[in-house]
Design a protein around this nucleic acid. Structure first.
Length: 807
DNA sequence: AGCACGCCGACT
DNA sequence: GTCGGCGTGCTC
């Protein structure tokens, strides 16, 4: 009998050199337990280091010529990775040029990441050694933490060299954190009552505990922490009761269920013609296991969400599951209630507000099949659903679907992969599709579904563009044109609400001297410091460096140093000055930092407890406020000035979306867009809510300049402490790439990134535009492994496939 | 990553 | 000589 005795393991060491499977012997005691997808603990390296790894494959023999180490321990009882996820991780690592271990870790809840600890222990026979005793200070084990001083490390290294101490490695599994200590009783309720009577008169704490146990008898076991904190019963009281046989300590696995109240079950409304046509097209793809991609181009208010819900229902009817992605920012209670209202408690919602424990619990509920519908932001695309019947991506153009650190994956690509794996449709929906998706629909790669009518024939808002270069407008002191000011006033008078959007990208409150032009910059990074009001300090967004606000210019000693640029706070002040009676709510990064505050602001505004909602991009997304009749955009063009080929697309999308916020109910909406570029097509087309015209114009320009969707783009950046070295290396890289690319491909750069210095490293980037690039892909992978030794000398190479921003 | 090995200078 | 500095290369 030939046993499967070798496991192929991806180890938790994120480096290029260890980015491949390592083989381990499966001890006979662990056969049948070590199967693909489980996590294991293995020894790695020459020392006694222990780390976590993922079993990818189990086989009979190994080609490895050395001696295989055994697997030390199996962490999971059942696999945490399905065969689908294992396959997906290979594809993802290849596509994003990332380490496979990083991919595996992103696919799983954070708690599955191992925590490593090191403990110092006296070597046998050296327990009494004075040096060892001094180090351990009477303890048997001392943890070696990250904050150990250099001197102490030296001392430890000494002792280790002379073999007086050993270092013990411990791999901790954080996912265990969900078992908690709880209290219960083995006594009957009557017995408890009896014991309660038998307590001494002055044993007040015990009496209180018994009373609690009797009252909560049906809810036992209760977590000890709950009893201790909420009911102020001391641990010693519990211990005493334990001794007396009244209570018993047990371990419970607690499932936090974040979706608290399940809203009333809602019936599916009748569909419009456009909606039912969309539903039937998608449903037939579900029925016939057709992994095609649909692109729903539907104007705001056309009822895309209902199409999503009914097609998801179809998948469920077939005994399948459904996955729906929405941008984090639209994961509002309104949205969630709508889905939960339809599907009840078979829904799991994965949003960033979940604690890591909650996230793990939701993951388990999905994994064990108790959840049929998953709604979530980007990372929910890895939800461990089995037998997926449909995948939906709402607002598919959103840049936040692309992760901006490693692995730099796009949720749309992962969804597409899974759609093919499950042989089920993928539905992309947007009022303003990304150029690449819309172009694919044009070519017939995606099937286009267009929804042009608004439900109940709500008219589109009336949009006006205000040319801020006009004499009348440039003369005003603040940032409000007379027209916008007047319209806000009117809306206030009619007791309606207004939204004011400040397009603040690349625009912030930095400090500038009006005498000499000096700008306060970060000493480590090449960016200006921004003012943080709650800190009262200047802060760097990249490295976190802080310093006090100077009152005289460090350069010319003038006192004319002050803030420059329009921040939300500044606009808020202007609004308060102009409309002293209006209640202004501000929503930006500062006011929404606290968990739940985003939802709180939306709720407050939705209940008309404020008159004006002022904010940045985040107010533009999918919110429905019936009393809003006016939307004002202060500076429509700041996103245009960014040196990014997607600048026009982003501007168009933002303006179209925010305009959709006005007048969704019976009242007509009015939108005022202030700009210095009134003739720009992105602004003009957005004002007309005319996606198709914009699409044609933008496609023409992309074609002219050779960008997505006509070309693929890959961004390669090189960094080093020394600017010259970084530049030298990037020229070398360019030469390497040139050699494998055809004449059709274009290489731009190397050029310094917009922020050319971050954390004291210099960054240069090369943009590669190409039509067909298997050679490029191969060469980039090779370069990554060839340059691994350079990595240690301070070089880093980062590759971003289809970047969302070039900066 | 983290560790051992190994090759150099300056110390009992 | 040898201790300990850091550079190099390997980990099943």
């Amino acid at each position: 009998m030939n046993k499967l005795a070798v496991a192929s393991v991806i180890v938790d060491v994120p480096t290029m050199q260890t980015n491949r499977p390592f083989e381990y012997e499966i001890p006979s005691a662990l056969t049948d337990v070590v199967i693909p997808g489980v996590r294991v603990e293995v020894g790695f390296g020459r020392g006694k280091r222990k780390i976590q790894g993922f079993v990818m494959e189990v086989k009979k023999t190994s080609d490895f010529t050395g001696k295989l180490k055994p697997i030390i321990r199996v962490i999971d009882v059942k696999p945490v990775l399905s065969s689908e996820m294992i396959k997906l991780s290979y594809w993802l690592a290849d596509r994003t040029y990332s380490f496979q271990i990083s991919c595996l870790q992103t696919m799983l809840p954070n708690v599955m990441r191992a925590k490593y600890k090191q403990f110092i222990q006296a070597a046998p026979g050296f327990e009494q050694d004075p040096e060892v005793q001094q180090l351990l200070n009477g303890h048997l084990l001392v943890e070696l933490t990250n904050d150990t001083t250099d001197e102490k490390i030296k001392e430890i290294a000494h002792l280790k060299r002379s073999e007086k101490i050993n270092i013990e490695y411990v791999v901790e599994n954080q996912a265990n954190s969900l078992t908690r200590q709880a209290v219960t009783t083995e006594l009957s309720k009557d017995a408890l009552l009896k014991s309660r009577e038998g307590l001494r008169k002055n044993a007040l704490a015990q009496q209180k505990l018994y009373d609690y146990l009797i009252k909560e008898y049906d809810n036992l076991p209760v977590e000890s922490s709950v009893i201790e904190k909420q009911n102020d019963i001391a641990r010693s009281t519990l211990k005493t009761a334990e001794k007396n046989g009244a209570v018993k300590f047990v371990e419970i696995t607690k499932r936090r269920k974040p979706v608290g109240i399940i809203p009333e079950q809602q019936k599916a409304p009748t569909l419009t013609d456009e909606q039912s046509e969309a539903v039937s097209k998608i449903n037939s793809a579900i029925d016939s296991n057709d992994p095609k991609t649909f692109l729903i181009e539907g104007v705001t208010g056309s009822g895309k969400t209902e199409v999503y819900l009914q097609t998801m229902q179809q998948a469920l009817n077939q005994g399948k599951t459904a996955l729906m992605l929405v941008p984090e920012i639209s994961l509002t209670p309104q949205m969630v209630n709508r889905v939960v209202g339809r599907f009840g408690d078979q829904v799991a919602v994965l949003h960033s507000g979940l604690s890591s424990g909650e996230r793990y619990d939701e993951w388990s509920r999905i994994e064990d099949g108790s959840v049929k519908v998953v709604v979530g932001a980007r990372s929910a695309v890895f939800a461990p659903l089995k037998n997926i019947g449909i995948i939906i991506i709402d607002e598919e153009h959103e840049a936040s679907y692309k992760q901006d650190d490693n692995p730099r994956y796009h949720a749309r690509d992962v969804a597409s992969w899974r759609s093919k794996f499950h042989k089920e449709p993928l539905v992309l929906g947007s009022a303003t599709p990304s150029l690449e998706s819309r172009a694919r629909a044009e070519k017939g790669v995606y099937q286009m579904i267009s929804m042009k009518k608004r439900i109940n024939d709500h008219p589109l808002p009336h949009v006006q563009i205000v040319d801020m270069r006009d004499a009348e407008n440039s003369a005003v002191k603040g940032d409000f044109s007379p027209l916008l000011k007047d319209n806000i006033w009117r809306a206030m008078k009619r007791n309606e609400q207004a939204i004011v959007l400040l397009n603040r990208r690349g625009y912030s409150s930095f400090l500038m001297c009006r005498e000499c032009g000096f700008v306060l910059k970060c000493p480590n990074c090449d960016v200006s410091l921004t003012y943080h009001k709650n800190l009262g300090k200047m802060k760097c967004h990249y490295c976190g460096h802080e310093e006090p606000v100077p009152h005289i210019c460090p350069n010319c000693k003038s006192k004319k140093i002050g803030f420059y640029g329009t921040g939300t706070e500044n606009i808020e002040n202007q609004l308060n000055e102009m409309f002293p009676e209006a209640r202004v709510l501000r929503m930006d990064v500062d006011t929404t930092r606290r968990k739940g505050s985003h939802a709180a602001i939306i709720k407050q505004f939705g209940e008309h407890q404020a008159d004006i909602l002022l904010g940045t991009q985040m107010i533009a997304k999918g919110l429905d406020f019936p009393d809003v009749t006016l939307v004002g955009v202060i500076n429509a063009d700041t996103t245009l000035s960014i040196s990014d080929y997607r600048a026009s697309e982003r501007t168009f999308q933002l303006l179209t979306q925010v305009s959709g916020r006005a007048g969704r109910a019976d009242k007509e909406g009015h939108v005022i867009i202030q700009t210095y570029n009134p003739d720009h097509y992105a602004i003009k087309d957005a004002a007309k809510q005319d996606y198709e015209t914009f699409f044609k114009q933008e496609m023409y320009l992309r074609h002219q300049s050779g960008y997505t969707p006509y070309y693929f783009t890959t961004l390669v950046s090189v960094s080093h402490q020394d600017e010259g070295q970084a530049l030298k290396q990037s020229f070398w890289l360019k030469k390497q790439l040139q050699a494998v690319l055809s004449d059709q491909a274009v290489l731009l750069g190397p050029s310094p990134t917009m922020i050319s210095r971050k954390q004291n490293k210099y960054f240069y980037q090369i943009i590669v535009k190409y039509k067909r690039g298997p050679e490029l892909h191969q060469r980039l992978l090779e370069i990554l492994s060839e340059t691994q030794s350079e990595t240690k000398r301070g070089f880093t190479i980062a590759i971003d496939n289809e970047p969302q921003h070039i900066d």
